[in-house]
Write a protein that binds this DNA or RNA. Structure first.
Lengths: 329, 329
DNA sequence: TTGAAAGCGCTAACAA
DNA sequence: TTGTTAGCGCTTTCAA
């Protein structure tokens, strides 16, 4: 077995050209005649040559690796394993990165060590980092040391961000429920530390106030169990609830279970609108009507921005959140 | 802003020692006196020094990066976005890698380009690759060029693998259903190209034959829609079915929806046992009784093996698959 | 259009 | 215990 991997010099020798020429050819930069180009390509193919990413990064000084930084706040909630949201982030990221010849590095940050590790991260930073589920504080700290950052959640004004219209989405959800004739629209909120959750809550409270409906809410912690518990409590305290706005599908899946467990039917007795359009929405029974975030699109755009250069300070783009009607409302 | 990142030489200069000494200190290898060690550490901390991963890799020749290779066979099914299984793989991988000071690179392979890219991958290989959802052919091709591989699914005899006892799990599921008094146990199978799916099917057919039950099955393609359609068809063709063994939770979630849509109740009229214990199992309504794969454990062990060296040819370890009782059976 | 040469930041012999 | 010296495989001026 030829354990030794061919280098650029092997290719150069085989093609009878210089190292620089080979470099030009494989990088598709001008400065090599067509005949030479083919000669080099053939030699490279025959040798089974593939450039070393490490050497390339070292020599050029600019790595083609994008980091996805995900912070875990709830240790027992797990991480990507727990929230289907990340699956969609990854799904959007991969094709965008491959198109740009880049790779993805996944960095999971425990909440405890987050502050410490964040500084190390900033220095080790590569093409850039995509921030998911980060607090404004942590994000700011990171941004101070590394400007090649895009956040997928609202953080501070300076940090470039691609945001979903969480507030508007929540309003739309409530409006939809109202249009269906529901007048006791309760809410299951996400954690107060999560900026997306805060915006969704704001949107909900805004909407019910304008509609002259009572604001009834309970925290659900963005997990299924929390959604289940919150819905059960809500129903126990306010038996006349006829609809629920649940701030994420995972919680909504739990809410549906809690509601049907009381003998009520979804959507007949209690209508539900979730948020995210994650896999939890389609797995729930009945399948959830939900507010769809263009997560893949946002993640892909974030990757592209990073690959294109350093995002401008304060850059902002908001993505619409759309109502997807299924069977729960 | 000090855009220039300090190098090992800066640290050496600041600490008044040589570059090698700094290298020894930061790599925790013997050959540096305690006083020098602290001096170097202080200097490094003050400068905010962090070693360049690229340079390190290049110089040492052994990268500390593990690749997760996932092949997409169904283009429209998406990828990690679609199957919650990958979330669990990632969840298991991250802590194990961090413990070993390694990073994760995620490689998504489209089925079309898979064969071509697989050769490139082998050469670009790093500490090693973890194979998920790969066909035996592709895996063999990869293994021929790079021995630092561990598969999480059954492939060929030579390729080191950590496998779940899919066959045994399927048998257990059927036995459970039988013990519950069910006698018309249908099955929704996964794709014939997937080795896990094949094993689960074998286990099912094995079990029903031994129990003297009829084998009734339909393909569901490992996706929710497929599970829904398969269950609906099964029920239409065999109205007396009183249980279903569904080869993955995603399909099972769809099956539950299809069953309840016919007016039947789960588990009263039709009991269901899924497979995987993914998030789809808990989001379904009622929550699914399922066969739990120790995915996180398997992924973590795979990472550890790779970090420890090249796995032995033909290495095999089988993980038990356990029944998790929830409400569907 | 091509080649020569100088590093990128680090590790790993080898000397001292 | 410490320092010196070569590279690792590539990109990138700068000349030719």
């Amino acid at each position: 077995m030829g354990e030794v991997r061919p280098t650029i010099d092997d290719v150069a020798r085989a093609a009878g050209v210089s190292r620089s020429t080979v470099s030009r050819v494989i990088n598709d930069v001008p400065g090599a005649s067509p005949p030479v180009r083919t000669r080099v390509r053939v030699a490279a193919a025959e040798l089974g040559y593939h450039p070393s990413q490490a050497a390339r990064t070292l020599a050029s000084g600019r790595p083609r690796t994008v980091d996805l930084v995900a912070v875990t706040y709830d240790t027992d909630t797990g991480w990507l394993g727990a929230h289907p949201y990340y699956s969609r982030v990854l799904a959007g990221l991969m094709p965008a990165l491959e198109g740009g010849g880049a790779q993805l590095r996944v960095l999971a940050l425990g909440a405890e060590a987050a502050a410490e590790r964040i500084d190390a991260l900033a220095d080790d930073a590569t093409t850039g980092m995509i921030l998911a589920n980060i607090t404004p504080e942590l994000a700011a700290r990171l941004y101070r040391r590394c400007p090649r950052i895009v956040s997928l959640v609202p953080t501070t004004a300076a940090i470039p961000a691609l945001e979903a219209d969480n507030t508007g989405g929540a309003r739309t959800a409530v409006a939809h429920l109202h249009a269906l004739g529901r007048r006791r629209v309760a809410a299951v909120h996400g954690p107060g530390t999560n900026t997306c959750a805060i915006d969704r809550r704001t949107g909900y409270e805004d909407a019910v106030r304008r509609l002259g409906l009572p604001a009834i809410g309970a925290p659900g912690g963005f997990c299924r169990e929390g959604g289940h518990a919150a819905a059960a409590r809500l129903l126990a305290d306010h038996p006349d609830i006829d609809a629920m706005f649940v701030a994420c599908d995972l919680m909504a899946a739990g809410a549906v279970q809690a509601i049907t467990a009381t003998g009520r039917r979804v959507p007949d007795d209690v209508a539900i609108v979730g948020f995210d359009d994650s896999i939890a929405a389609t797995c729930a029974n009945p399948p959830l009507t939900t507010m769809r975030l263009p997560v893949e699109q946002m993640a892909a755009e974030a990757a592209r921005m990073l690959l294109d250069g350093t995002p401008a300070r304060g850059y902002r783009r908001t993505y619409p959140v759309e109502l997807v009607c299924r069977e729960s409302a």
